[in-house]
């Protein structure tokens, strides 16, 4: 609780991360927030931009190879924002990599995911990976909300250690759902476009 508060304060000081709700309302319904990914600050910025009530029930999905190695980062991920770890390394996976996400959703939590799978150096996102589609298929009751994070690719570009304090605005867009019989490629393109139109 204390850790979370300090974390949110720090994020506000560094990058502002104030939310703008353009396409939906900040309501306490179960959601998967999906956003463009350009820096290690993204996870924290999106999570901090949520109102406290929603933030308490929302868990960012974090790469185990970056956030899960103990130390300060591990502490922040465990106690600060209660990360759901995802294994990016195929060698070390056992079972379905989406299982931990499904467990969190089954427990009633909302999720934050970055469907590009890795950070892109550009302001606009790369094509999305299939994870978002599979989640939508398995949990049709969950709203999928497109989010766009601006400026952060400049604040902490790939390969940099310290963030430059620049104000980031977190724009929340429309909620999507998987249409009946919608094709995977089709859905992923639609989701991608929903993020791009907020840029």
């Amino acid at each position: 609780m204390i850790t979370s508060r300090i974390l949110v304060g720090l994020v506000r000081l560094l990058v502002g991360a104030h939310g703008r709700w353009l396409g939906c309302e900040p309501k306490p319904v179960q959601r998967v927030y999906f956003a463009n990914h350009s820096s290690h600050l993204d996870t924290l910025a999106l999570w901090a931009a949520l109102p406290p009530l929603l933030r308490r029930r929302t868990r960012p999905v974090a790469a185990r190879d970056y956030w899960g190695n103990g130390g300060l980062r591990g502490f922040v991920a465990e106690h600060g924002f209660r990360a759901v770890y995802i294994e990016r390394d195929r060698e070390r996976r056992d079972g379905d990599p989406l299982d931990p996400l499904c467990e969190a959703l089954a427990a009633g939590d909302s999720l934050i995911i970055f469907p590009e799978g890795t950070r892109s150096p550009a302001p606009l996102p790369q094509p999305f990976k299939a994870g978002l589609y599979h989640l939508a298929q398995r949990h049709p009751q969950v709203e999928l909300v497109a989010v766009y994070l601006d400026t952060l690719h400049r604040a902490m570009p790939k390969g940099s250690l310290l963030p430059v304090p620049l104000t980031c605005m977190v724009r929340f867009g429309r909620a999507l759902r998987l249409a009946e019989g919608e094709h995977k490629e089709c859905f992923l393109q639609r989701a991608h476009a929903a993020v791009v139109e907020l840029a």
């Binding site: 502002g16 430059v164 304090p165 620049l166 104000t167």
Partner: peptide, 8 residues
């Protein structure tokens, strides 16, 4: 904060 605004 002023520098943050300027550079943003």
């Amino acid at each position: 904060f002023a520098l943050r605004e300027f550079l943003t």
